[in-house]
Amino acid sequence: MTVARQDFLVDLRAVRFAYGEREILRGIDLSVRRGQVVAIMGGSGCGKTTLLRLIGGQLRASAGQVVVDGADLAGLSRAALYGLRRRMGMLFQFGALFTDMSVFDNVAFPLREHTDLPPELVRALVLMKLNAVGLRGAEALSPAELSGGMARRVALARAIALDPMLIMYDEPFAGLDPISLGVIGQLIRRLNDALGASSIMVTHDIHESLEIVDYVYFVSDGRIVARGTPDEIRASDDPFVHQFVHAEADGPVPFHYPAPSLAASLLGEVGA
């Protein structure tokens, strides 16, 4: 690849991360070009969400560099980090809407916190964002009255309220019915292109993702094991990718948790 480094909005170089003794990430190189939608895939608990936290600056890498929009997160003060985060939007797994506010106030929250816009303008912006996710009619509802898919769309409207340069999605498809799933998938792509933003999506929903993303990283055991465009992934004969794409129970990711052989366990040789 001959892309200049400044073309990367997000650039992770040899990033390692550990919770105490437990190593989660063991050297990740990952980059997102401006305008791209990138998916990070992998099994549950492989460190995908940790990656998003690192990019959002909620966690600090124990080694390596996390560079977002040219700024190394390790060297940022809290104020500078908050400044950077104003240009990021994040969609949490279950939306994380503020339960004590209406849908309207949820979407208006970032605008009211970070701008001094007059109420009429805030109202116009909020309605535009809600319209973009197709929920303008739901502005007066409380989050408790929304279905899972609607809550996620409201959260998406809130994430894009300040027209961010980078949108992050943590498992945007988890627990959705097929229709909502398609709706969210299309929204992610459309909003990314409309806003001229870049998106990073952490997911294990491979088929939906391959439809909408530009590039895919596969993470397993804290390392990137495969990468490529959707077409490359579909054509890949990498055993891990193959197992993942075709949802096979056994393969490079074993079905069994490491254990002595079944025969040995049954014959009681372990206890002997």
């Binding site: 959002g56 909620q58 908050y82 400044g83 985060r85 104003r86 990021m88 994040m90 949490f92 797994q93 279950f94 994380a96 809407l97 503020f98 339960t99 004590d100 929250f109 970032p110 916190e113 970070h114 959260a155 809130r158």
Partner: peptide, 25 residues
């Protein structure tokens, strides 16, 4: 209970990601 539930449902983290300090807000 209120703050705890906000933590469980990641509302505090979401706020932090929106560059609003949960301690202040």
């Amino acid at each position: 209970a209120e703050i705890g539930l906000m933590k469980v449902t990641e509302q505090l983290k979401a706020m932090d990601m929106m560059a609003v300090s949960p301690i202040a807000r």
